[in-house]
Design a protein around this nucleic acid. Structure first.
Lengths: 336, 336
DNA sequence: TTGTATGCGTTATCAA
DNA sequence: TTGATAACGCATACAA
């Protein structure tokens, strides 16, 4: 059985295709009677208006694209969860793209989306160090873009972020108050805007408590478990920090693994705090003190913002920035 | 600036639209020279063939739909990760739908996909207790469907699953060998095929070691943290199990929380093992013994299977079943 | 190798 | 309220 189309359905009902089409639009002039008859027949024959024909005709796809650095990640899967919920309420579908933190892939995805495939884009970026000009083409195509969490500072587009500076400041301050004086700051990419902001909070907190900032204590890590383990063990051996602040969740885990391997006791010898959306942070050994971002809410806000742009472009300022609060949740990894 | 279309590009180049169109198809007769010229101009003007027009014309979308019970879940996000990788290699896009374990949503998503929006569907199901006949319509539409992990036994379609029975048997056996005799089995929905299979492994292992099966030790839980906490605390109070086997990851966490609350020591008083894809199981307190499913691989296999069906429908048997091995990883939660 | 003409399935405009 | 028809942007059969 092939897919039935509007012509065939019209023929069955002895109606014109226009009338049938009208039955599926809410605002059209059509008698209740015929509409019901058409919808009943459509259900019976399992007819659905072809999505691609509608899109072509209407010049919009009721689809949004979501681009994230990675999928197997608590933060992003929770954010996507939030986006999905809003999109579903609006009757939109979502396309998912993972860049694996690869700038080339990001560019390629965005370029592919220039073909009308999506009505809007929600993205958490990957290539801070690179040229972002390719994003300006979106503006020209009137393809709305919303950043969340990881953003490009030099691209003017609405964004949803968290108060990273304040959170980092609080987290660092917390470590200091718990007696730490040699606090390592672990980061994946110092140059990512998010890395820079979080780092500034760390630096300023140190300064407030007259702790000299030491470049060596800022450790550049990777996305590889194996490499991080090597980097961190080396770091612990050389620098003997008494506190570790990790700018992303994965590095908190890496810190735990390294400490396990080296028989360094958390929190007795080293106190650890990290940005993390892990719901089971209380179950870790020891329970992990976290800066918890409202990941789902970030997704919800980003999607809502995009839909506002879609529904009324005028209503959203291009420089709109929604800042949500993260929470510092103190647990045993920073206990005295 | 509006989107440029094939006509305008053709005009700019003083060529016909057909020639321009050919430049984007690999197999067409076109001189290298003109092709290069066209592609260069396309890049310059940022032309991309409109996706919906192509789809309408070609009657396929180069898009696959992925339907899962939930997104904020280690297993599913890893599986999606695997699917995404394969899809990207094949030049396909993926649409994501989360059912929140709601049968109605599942039906609604599938029905919406009847309109040509996707060329195939990969799904982990939600509504075991309900009528699955609506899926048979897909066959009639030649819309290929692949199940993974959670499947409907009564629907004939290719599937990728793990050896749940064996894993459950091994896990239960492991608990028994560690001295447990009152082993609780925690499940979200006894009626889901995956619940049944896993439960059978548990039952048979008990039997092998002459441990009487006690209905009360099979505990029906929910997806709510709060409710599970109440259910499990009550369960520990009444049944005093010395072992807990959880059929899904979330229930292992719930068990930990309940034990923390009740001051029950794991593994001294209760040993715990659970199905889980958590990569940081070693970092839990105590480290969690897991049945680890190859989540990413499951996604990769499911996607590969779907693409085989897409490329050559004859090549895949409708009853094809790929069974991957899970691993029982013994850690401290079941130590002596 | 390139151009012309048609149709993919739908919706909007216009006329009846 | 309904019907005829054109157009959305593209890819192919066929002609040149």
């Amino acid at each position: 059985m092939r897919n039935i189309n509007i012509k065939e359905l019209a023929k069955v009902l002895n109606l014109s295709t226009s009338t049938v089409s009208r039955a599926f639009r809410d605002n059209s002039d059509i008698s209740k009677e015929t509409k019901d008859k058409i919808l009943a027949a459509a259900k019976e024959l399992n007819y659905q208006p072809n999505h691609y024909a509608s899109n072509l005709r209407e010049q919009r796809s009721k689809t949004i694209a979501v681009i994230v650095p990675e999928l197997a990640n608590n933060f992003f899967s929770q954010a996507i969860n939030g986006i999905e919920r809003i999109a579903r309420e609006k009757g939109y579908h979502i396309l998912i793209y993972a860049t694996d933190d690869d700038y080339e892939k990001e560019v390629s995805f965005i370029r592919h989306l220039h073909n009308g495939r999506a009505d809007g884009i929600i993205m958490s970026v990957s290539g801070e160090a690179n040229d972002h000009n390719y994003l300006n083409e979106l503006n020209q195509k009137r393809l709305p873009l919303v950043f969340f969490d990881r953003v490009y500072e030099d691209i003017k587009t609405p964004r949803v972020i968290t108060n990273d500076y304040d959170s980092s400041f609080s987290a660092t301050q917390h470590l200091i108050k718990q007696g730490c004086t040699r606090i390592a700051y672990l980061v994946i990419n110092k140059n990512l805007s998010i890395g820079k902001t979080r780092m500034q909070g760390y630096i300023d907190a140190l300064q407030k408590y007259d702790i000299p900032y030491d470049d060596h204590l800022v450790v550049d890590c990777t996305n590889s478990y194996r490499k991080n383990n090597i980097i961190l063990k080396d770091m612990f051996g050389r620098l003997k920090p008494d506190g570790v602040f990790t700018s992303v969740e994965r590095l908190a885990f890496a810190t735990y693994y390294a400490c396990y391997d080296l028989d360094i006791s958390i929190p007795a010898q080293v106190k650890v705090v990290g940005f993390s959306s892990l719901e089971i942070a209380p179950l870790l050994n020891p329970s992990l003190t976290t800066v918890t971002q409202p990941a789902t809410k970030i997704g919800v806000e980003a999607a809502s913002l995009l839909f506002r742009m879609l529904e009324d472009p005028q209503s959203v300022n291009i420089s709109q920035e929604i800042v949500l609060d993260s929470k510092l949740v103190k647990r045993n990894s920073t206990a005295l």
